[in-house]
Amino acid sequence: MSTLPTLVLVHGAWHGTWCWQPLIDQLPDLDIRTVALPSSGQNPAVLGGLYDDAVAVAKAIAAVSGPTVVVGHSYGGSPVTEAAATTGDVRRVIYLSALMQDAGESVLSQVGGVHPPYWDVHENPQGRAEHSYFEASHPLEILYSDVEPHLAQQSIARLGRQSLASVTQSLTQAAWHTLPSTYILCEQDMAIPLPLQEAMATRAQHTERLRSGHSPFLSQPAELARILRKQLELQP
């Protein structure tokens, strides 16, 4: 097994650990851990919020006996930002076309307080925010624009629901203030526009670019693996 840090992978909204498999296949020599976020799943009644996700990320980091590098994709950047600074031996946080926020910010505030058009929002009619959720509208165009068609359809079939609490709860701390960070820009992303990525990436010490859509772990796993390996090798 490699002497490089353990790689902890945190998926984005609607997804699960399954989405990382093509990337993992490209890195057979690394110790890789994946985190299943409680905010994503099929049953709205049991979905967690941002803070539940941060606890899951923290537990995964704490379970590693040595140094880690933590990758957050899309929404996954939020619980990573919340959890990584105060748990374990994290050497670097990598934002993969991800939300890179500061303390006091939420996902919704980051996008101007308005639900993006590709969020199909279902608010609980009884006013119970913990049961409100949203689904991905037009996932083929928004999430998987450059993914091989058969794999894209398989992925769409596995998408879950995402709790509204995960995007309305605000961060209490931001790991990138105290930890080295890298932002990987996905230049053809239809979910998080490139100008927004570039604005957030100004907070990172290092940036990389991929000519990919929103999900390069499916569309360009070999190239993404190359970039991640380079980041791992930067560590002491």
Rank of each mutant, 00 (worst) to 15 (best):
S2E: 06
L4G: 05
L7G: 08
V8Y: 10
L9K: 09
V10F: 01
V10S: 03
G12S: 08
H15I: 00
H15Y: 09
H15D: 00
P22N: 10
P22E: 08
P22A: 07
L23T: 07
L30F: 02
L30M: 03
L30C: 05
P38M: 09
S39Y: 09
S40W: 05
N43S: 14
N43E: 15
P44G: 06
A45G: 13
V46L: 15
L50P: 10
L50R: 06
D52F: 10
V55R: 11
V57H: 03
S65D: 15
S65H: 15
V69K: 06
Y75A: 01
A85G: 15
D89S: 14
Y95W: 00
S97E: 12
A98P: 08
L99S: 07
M100T: 04
Q101M: 14
Q101T: 09
D102I: 02
E105V: 00
E105F: 05
S106M: 12
L108Q: 11
G112Q: 01
G113M: 01
P116K: 01
Y118L: 09
Y118H: 15
Y118G: 06
W119K: 04
H122Y: 13
P125G: 11
G127C: 09
R128A: 13
A129Q: 14
S132K: 06
A136P: 05
S137Q: 14
E141V: 00
I142P: 02
I142G: 01
I142M: 09
S145L: 06
E148R: 10
P149Y: 11
A152G: 01
A152K: 07
Q154F: 12
S155M: 13
S155W: 05
L159V: 13
L159A: 09
L159E: 11
G160V: 02
G160F: 07
Q162W: 05
Q162P: 04
S170Y: 03
L171Q: 08
A174Q: 07
A174P: 01
A175H: 03
W176G: 00
W176C: 05
H177S: 13
P180V: 02
T182E: 05
I184K: 03
E187H: 11
I192P: 08
P193I: 06
P195S: 12
P195F: 11
L196G: 09
E198F: 02
A201V: 01
Q205S: 12
H206E: 14
T207Q: 14
R209A: 10
S212M: 00
S212H: 10
S215R: 01
P216R: 07
P216H: 02
P216M: 01
F217S: 09
A222H: 13
L224I: 10
R226Q: 15
I227T: 05
L228M: 02
L228H: 05
Q231A: 10
Q231R: 12
E233V: 14
E233P: 12
Q235G: 00
Q235H: 05
